[in-house]
Each structure stands twice: as structure tokens, then as C-alpha cells.
Design a binder for these strands. Structure first.
Lengths: 212, 212
DNA sequence: GTCTATATAGGGATAGAC
DNA sequence: GTCTATCCCTATATAGAC
């Protein structure tokens, strides 16, 4: 929102840490390297974050906070459920594409990459609820076909995250073919296709219009 | 296939290591703990594997080898493409359910959880090709609708893996409700539903029967 | 093949000057 | 608020006896 040509050291640390945590995971991340990339000494990190674990928390919270805002903005908008669905997927895919490291952290987090105690991230669960409630509501109003909403949301999160984080490794030909925008479009289209066929389903749209 | 009441120490190490690597990732895994769980001294591990990295490779190879066998068996069987599709999903879901740790390793591996050099696992890429070729073939013979086969395979891998590895953390209510068998069935049904709607698509089955 | 003991290194974290 | 120096611990790996 604000032009920040001059970002504070704290922000730079968070940014570099996000990349490193995504790339190497919590245990694979070296504070030494973060400091080096920021251009300060390792000891100086401890002026901003009292421990590696605190730094990790800060990164997580920033990432999820932003994601949640994006989701909420879409859900609170004035639009039909189907439009919201598309907007939701668009926004999510854009976010993942713009911040693949953040997505990797999300995936790692849900694989149990955390330092012991804090394995249950309330942020993630809250996000889940938010979206699956939307789908349940759509079902209730008979706009969506009846499916397991949680399963569907999990599917989409897993699928899209997998596209951007794992596909480069296990299907490089597919991923690297063409420019980034084309890839993003392709993934949006595919994802929406899948969701739509599940939620609007086998009945074709024309017959559904008549239904109401 | 063979009754193995007496397994060698090497096998026990591999088993324990698989669990630990799945749970904590490469960098989070402590050889000390593996040894402890096996019931030997840490130093004894080095009699079987010359380094942590070699142990990691061995675990990976064993896991993927078995997975590939399962997939091949299904693809080589005598069955219609649609039956194979269902068998493929069933087999994959069963495998993931039986070895969630192995699946976590797969996910971690594709997130880049490897010790530097070996980031490109040929096993994974080979597996991908195997399945997407099957789908392409089905398309060519006009049994399947025309979709991006790679995207679809990635979707299924990502989705199912996510169900078993991440859902327990981010949607515990959904995951833990009821006995394991019911959960596995639920996931199979959902996954097949998604794939079927994508591949067999909007045309309904009755009209397709007439087609051939 | 398994042990005890030890080498060696690297990583997180602190102390204290500037 | 950033630095240098250093503490302390833990982790991988090796040496060599049994």
C-alpha cells in the first residue's frame, strides 16, 4: 500500500528468511546464510529476533496473514458463488505463483517441519474453515452440487501447491515450457476445470438455469 | 511375499530411517535417534551405510522401487482403460495410506529436501512419464476426454499425498473422523470422482456405452 | 558386526566493545 | 544497531578394541 523504496533491515531479514525456509526447510536453514544474504553479521539477527524459532514464527505469520486477507477479500465481495469460486482460484494461484517459497513453507509446515511444539498452526485451520464454509453455503443454497467440501478444498490446495513447488522438479518439461504467464493461465484453467466439474458437475449449465 | 519373521539389521535400519526421514526431513533426522530406535549404537550404522546421505539414497530407492512395481503391475494388466484408472487410484491410495512416511519423503524430496547435488530424482520423473503416457494413450483411442495428462497426474499425486500427509494437521476433524478403512474409502471415492469427471467428463456413462 | 571413545566441524546463541 | 570474539552443544563421522 505504501511505497517502500527504503525497507528496514527487519523486513529484509524476513524476506530472505522466507526464501531460505522455503528452499531448505527449518532445519536446513542456516542463520549464517540469511545474515550473509542480508549483508549483516549473524549476531545482528538476534537484535531483531530472539531466536531462530521466533524468526520462523514471524515469517509464518506474515505469510498466512497476507493469504488470509486475499481470501477474505474475495469471499466478502459482491459476486455469485460461481464467480467467487473462480476469483478464489485465480487469487490463490496468483499468490502461489508470486510466492512459491511461501507455499513451500506452508507445505513443509503441514508436513511437520516445525520445531517441535508448534505443530498445530491455527492460521491454517482457520483458512480451511473459511473456504469450506463458503462451499457448504453454496451447497445449501443449491448452487453447488453436493460434495465433501473439506476434501475439495484440500484437493485444490494440494494440487495447486504441488504444481508450483514439485512440478519443476518432477515434471520440468511440463513446467518450464513457455513463459510464466502462460503457465499460470494453464494452471488456473486446469484447476477451475477440475473444481467446476466437481461442483457444477454432470448436469449441464443450461438445464440448471431452468431449475431455479 | 516371503515370511520374514527375522529381518536383518539393515532392513530394520531402513525401516526406522524411512519413518524418521518422513517425519522430520533429511536435515531434521538424527542418526543418533535412528540407532536408538533400532537398538544399536550410532557408530554401528556406519557399518551398513557409509554416510547419512547414502542411507537417504537407499531409503528413497527402496520406496520408489516398490511404488513403481505397483504402478507397472496395474498398467500391464488386462483391463479397460477406465478399470485401470480405478485400479491405479486404488493402488496409489492404498500405498500412501500404508506408507504415509514414504509419501512424506516423496513430497519433501520434491520440495528440495535433498543434500545438495541429487535434487533431480530420476525415479520420480520416470514414474510420471509412465502414468501420463497411459492417459495420453487413452486419449488417442478416444476413451478419455482430451485433457492435459501431466496436469492431471500431478493433480492426483498432489491431492492424495496432501490428504494423507497434511490433512491430519490442517483438517484434523475431517481426517480423524471414523476408522481408517472408512477414511481410505472416502478418499478413493473422492479422487476417482474427480478424475472421472475430468476424463470421462460431461458426457454421461450411458451414452458412452452406446458409443463403442 | 558391534561396541566405546574421540576427532572434527558447524550451528545457535551470548558478551561486550563501539 | 552492528560488529568481533567466543561459548557451548550437538551432529556426523572415524579409530580401534573386542
Amino acid at each position: 500500500m505504501v511505497a517502500h523504496a527504503e525497507r528496514g533491515t527487519r523486513e529484509r531479514i524476513l524476506e530472505v528468511a522466507e526464501t531460505s525456509l522455503g528452499e531448505h526447510g527449518y532445519h536446513g536453514t542456516r542463520l549464517h546464510q540469511i545474515a550473509q544474504q542480508v549483508g549483516i553479521q549473524k549476531a545482528s539477527l538476534f537484535h531483531y529476533f530472539s531466536s531462530k524459532e521466533h524468526l520462523y514464527r514471524a515469517v509464518i505469520e506474515e505469510g498466512f496473514g497476507e493469504t488470509e486477507q486475499v481470501i477474505r477479500r474475495v469471499l466478502d465481495s459482491e459476486a455469485t458463488p460461481l464467480e467467487k469460486l473462480r476469483a478464489l482460484i485465480d487469487a490463490y494461484v496468483d499468490m502461489v505463483a508470486a510466492h512459491p517459497e511461501r507455499t513451500k513453507i506452508l507445505l513443509r509446515q503441514s508436513l511437520g517441519d516445525a520445531p517441535a511444539a508448534q505443530n498445530q498452526p491455527p492460521e491454517l485451520q482457520r483458512l480451511m474453515k473459511l473456504v469450506s464454509t463458503f462451499i457448504t453455503e453454496g451447497e445449501r443454497v443449491q448452487v453447488f452440487a453436493s460434495v465433501d467440501p473439506t476434501a475439495l478444498v484440500l484437493s485444490v490446495i494440494g494440487m495447486v501447491a504441488f504444481f508450483f513447488t514439485s512440478a519443476p522438479v518432477i515434471a520440468p518439461d511440463w513446467f518450464d515450457g513457455g513463459p510464466a504467464e502462460a503457465r499460470i493461465e494453464r494452471i488456473k484453467r486446469h484447476t477451475f476445470m477440475v473444481v467446476q466439474r466437481c461442483l457444477v458437475g454432470t448436469r449441464d449449465p443450461s438445464s440448471r438455469e431452468a431449475e431455479r
